[in-house]
Design a protein around this nucleic acid. Structure first.
Length: 508
RNA sequence: GUCUCGUUAGCUCAGCUGGUAGAGCACGUCACUUUUAAUGAUGUGGCCGUUGGUUCGAAUCCAACACGGGACACCA
């Protein structure tokens, strides 16, 4: 059964055919629109206070999709919507060509169609600024009916799979994606203004590196080799620092072949930036400035709700990870350096932990268990144990710790940053350790990237680098709780009738 | 990956302890020249997610599967 077999669609196809028979193109080629709806509403808002409530000397042509259709005999009220706003238009039989109102307008036009109307502004008895129509043209016939006008489209599956329909029916969804676009645009401008250079590094990698994650594999036919969709741009961006660029950033997609849930999509957007001659402390200052910049330009209040929480963005604090365990997590101070005591404490509190974990890993577990969810206001957690920070530089004063921070907001990690490891021999050793882990069955362990080590061996200036998950940032700033609500086309499982392209023999 | 809830008309949803399917919106027809989810009258519209089982009989009970939501685990 095809989509078009539906009786409602058949009915609308018949209307389109009837229009063609009457010499009206249901898919017009051009539009004479000369203003948008929000401009129309702004420019004519004075009529609300005018004596006559109308001004026939003004004339506009607007266009949009019909969302409401109210026929009252020889007059009708429609609501049409364009990207900017919704407008009520008043259509009467006597203001249109002979026969058009009864034979075309009432019979062939319906909710969902895209039309163009011209006329003059007036205010109705109910006080709504509207357009008094004296010219009507169908631009596009919709042969599929829209969802119900009051409840709209609420089925999440359909909203994600048919996002166009979601955008038609739910104007607040459009708002969310406008904010997303603004955030990316502002981010780009912020870093450019700071002197960073935007670069594009490969998305098809011979070696998947820069993060612990399973990659997607694709195949290059001409070369006869497999390629990995990148899991992080990190190693390429650092090569650029070696090459002499001193501040670079890249905003784009990463791909990770892992599960999907409310905070994970197989492809996600991040910004990574690297800054030579700086340390993670400079990045803390930069990050605060970045948030101020975003809040300022997005005109967001410093007190922002997120679900049940209220986040105060005027209060950024900073605390070393181990200190946070007792100060915030309430863990007795005497146990946070003792492996056995931490094991007992975690198990007493219902967490399953393996005996094989070392002190640094256990401190990480303790943080996840007792601290993370309590970090509502923006908090920089600093000085991570070296065991859980394979790419970060050791702290000069305490080599068990690293010059690293993660930023937590509303109980979630938003950014990860550190002073970069730039000792090539140390880096080589860490890659070798990863190879052992991989041989031992860790599918997410890093692969050896000899060229990256070679690059470092030419000398990389002391550099600080940071990554921010853009999707999660957008979630935070738009009070959305599923990553699918900030991605226009989130990944979905294939439907039964959708064939896997690899099962077909089609070639272009 | 595990647990849990859901899937009924184009859309939003009812449908009890099993007895051949209901409403509102939309759509068709009629009335109506200032309505606001317009209103009134009337009509059309269903492989009850898929497959199997129990039963004289299944939208309803059971099982498996598919897709989706939520939670947990891993990650960003």
């Amino acid at each position: 059964m095809s989509f078009f077999d539906n009786k409602y669609i058949q009915q609308r196809i018949e209307k389109a055919d009837a229009l063609k028979a009457e010499g009206i193109n249901p898919y017009a080629n051009d539009s004479a629109r000369n203003t948008t709806i929000d401009k129309f509403l702004n420019v004519n808002s004075d009529l609300a206070h005018a004596e006559t409530k109308r001004d026939e000397s003004r004339h506009y042509c607007v266009a949009g999709r019909i969302k409401f259709f109210r026929v009252m005999g020889k007059a009708s009220f429609l609501k049409i919507e364009d990207e900017s706003a919704m407008l009520q238009v008043y259509v009467t039989r006597d203001n249109l060509p002979e026969g058009f109102y009864n034979n075309v307008f009432k019979k062939q036009i319906e909710v969902g169609d895209i039309i163009e109307v011209e006329g003059f502004p007036f205010v109705t008895n109910q006080g709504e600024l509207s357009l008094h129509v004296d010219g009507f043209k169908l631009l596009t016939k919709a042969i599929a009916p829209l969802p119900e006008k009051f409840h709209g489209l609420t089925d999440k599956e359909m909203r994600y799979r048919q996002r166009y329909l979601d955008l038609i029916m739910n104007s607040e969804v459009r708002k969310t994606f406008k904010i997303r676009s603004q955030i990316i645009s502002l981010t780009r401008r912020f870093f450019e203004d700071k002197g960073f250079l935007e670069v594009e590094t490969p998305m098809m990698h011979p070696i998947a590196g820069g993060a612990n994650a399973k990659p997607f594999v694709t195949h290059h036919n001409a070369l006869g080799v497999d390629r990995y969709l990148r899991i992080a741009p990190e190693l390429y961006l650092k090569r650029l620092i070696v090459g002499g660029f001193e501040a670079v950033f890249e905003i784009n997609r990463n791909f990770r072949n892992e599960g999907m849930d409310a905070t994970h999509n197989p492809e996600f957007t991040s910004i990574e930036f690297y800054w030579a001659y700086k340390t993670y402390k400079d990045l803390i200052a930069l990050t605060k400035e970045y948030f101020e910049y975003l809040f300022d330009h997005l005109k967001l209040p410093a007190l922002l709700p997120y679900g049940e929480m209220e986040v105060d963005f005027s209060k950024f604090t900073e605390i070393p990870l181990i200190e946070s365990l007792s100060a915030i997590g309430g863990v007795p101070e005497i146990i946070v350096h003792d492996k056995e005591k931490m094991l007992v404490y975690l198990r007493e509190n219902g967490f399953e932990v393996s005996d094989s974990l070392n002190v640094g890993q256990l401190q990480g577990e303790m943080f996840d268990a007792f601290v993370e969810e309590k970090l509502i206001n923006p908090t920089f957690i600093t000085m991570y144990p070296v065991e859980i920070s394979p790419l970060a530089r050791r702290n000069d004063a305490n080599p068990a710790l690293t010059d690293r921070f993660e930023l937590f907001i509303a109980g979630r990690e938003i950014a990860n940053a550190f002073s970069e490891l730039n000792d090539p021999i140390d880096q080589l050793g860490r890659f070798e350790g990863q190879l052992e882990a991989k041989a031992g069955g860790d599918e997410e362990a890093h692969e050896m990237d000899e060229d990256f080590v070679r690059a470092l061996s030419y000398g990389m200036a002391p550099t600080a680098g940071q990554g921010i998950g853009i999707d999660r940032l957008v979630m935070l700033l738009t009070n959305e709780h599923s990553i699918r609500d900030v991605l226009l086309f989130p990944a979905m499982k294939p439907l039964k009738h959708e064939m896997n392209p690899s099962d077909e023999d089609e070639e272009e």
